[in-house]
């Protein structure tokens, strides 16, 4: 934990310089050892990429014909059918003719739900956790450390343990199958977020804060004008990670958000999986659905790739 206040933020910037300085660096001749190392790395890259390609290939195949050419790297009996099944633009008969079930994903509805849920969780969790972290890091008040310790104990409680009673609570509140029900347990804070941000807030220079105080700024203004801007990197990191996790969450929304109107993509996808035709799984349809569900995260990644990578490394060093 000691390393926290010296964040890795500078690391990416001076990375290129380091490359040049490191013994050997890029110009080292390709000896057999290095060649082997490259081969291993490329193998890993291949293992990482291959499933995506196979997913794409299957998603464009006719499910009924898949077994005729199981090895072919190209789509078997090319068709848009699986994607049409996913988007619900194929009729039940058409779907079944290609070895699908009649089930369809109301894709746009689920996409909307995933977006709403993930955004609400991210915004709420990061903001409220930042508020709490500020209170723990920069304000002094009686009992602060004791309260913080109590908060920390929540880190030890495994999610599955609280999920069961939380389910009962959400049920009693009548919030089953509503957005608030899906969002609520993650909306106000997670112990990790509070802990993570507190560490950064502790490291912010006091001088700025004091100067603002002298200028007559209150705690609220300091929080919004000094603390938050000074912590934009950790806030972005936390935001990105929270969003990815919220987007990928399955256990909780599967319990409280089964109904179509609020169903998120992960839950919809597993329901699509259960809608198997009697003639064996609709692999092509499933892969099309998986592909379609992966596209939004892929787009986010294309847009913010570097930022995401840096974010994750950021949490690593701290």
């Amino acid at each position: 934990m000691t390393a926290v206040a010296q964040p890795a933020a500078p690391a990416p910037q001076d990375a290129p310089r380091r490359t040049r300085l490191r013994p050997g660096g890029r110009r080292r001749p390709l000896n057999p050892g290095r060649l082997l190392a490259w081969a291993v790395l490329l193998l890993f890259l291949l293992v990482t990429i291959a499933p995506f390609l196979w997913m794409l290939r299957t998603a464009l195949s006719n499910n009924r014909s898949l077994f005729t050419e199981p090895n072919s790297p190209l789509p078997v009996d090319f068709t848009w059918g699986p994607l049409q099944r996913v988007f619900g633009t194929a009729s039940t008969e058409e779907a079944q003719a290609e070895g699908g079930s009649g089930a369809s994903l109301h894709f746009w509805v689920y996409l909307r739900n995933s977006l709403i849920v993930s955004t609400l969780i991210t915004v709420g969790q990061v903001f409220f956790s930042a508020c709490a972290a500020y209170a723990f890091a920069r304000l002094s008040w009686p009992g602060r450390d004791k309260v913080f310790f109590v908060f920390l104990t929540a880190l030890m409680v495994p999610p599955v343990f609280t999920m069961l009673p939380n389910f009962v609570l959400i049920k009693e509140l009548g919030l089953l199958n509503t957005y608030p029900g899906i969002v609520a347990p993650f909306f106000f804070m997670t112990p990790f977020a509070v802990f993570f941000l507190r560490q950064f807030f502790l490291g912010i220079n006091r001088e700025l804060e004091e100067a603002a105080m002298i200028d007559g700024a209150g705690y609220y203004r300091i929080f919004f004008r000094i603390i938050l801007p000074a912590s934009s990197a950790p806030l972005a990191t936390l935001g990105i990670l929270t969003f990815i996790n919220a987007w990928n969450e399955y256990f909780w929304p599967n319990l409280v958000g089964q109904k179509d109107g609020v169903r998120v993509l992960t839950v919809a996808l597993s329901a699509f999986r259960t809608a198997t035709p009697n003639t064996g799984p609709d692999w092509a349809g499933l892969m099309a659905a998986a592909l379609v569900a992966a596209v939004p995260t892929m787009l986010v990644f294309l847009a913010f790739g570097r930022k995401i990578i840096n974010s994750i490394q950021f949490t690593g060093v701290k």
Partner: peptide
Amino acid sequence: RETRAALVFLAPAALGFLVFFAWPT
């Protein structure tokens, strides 16, 4: 004043903690 501010900042997270962590435990 500082304590009062702290309470305000802490309130939402404390609510979340009590309702979704402490009580369910």
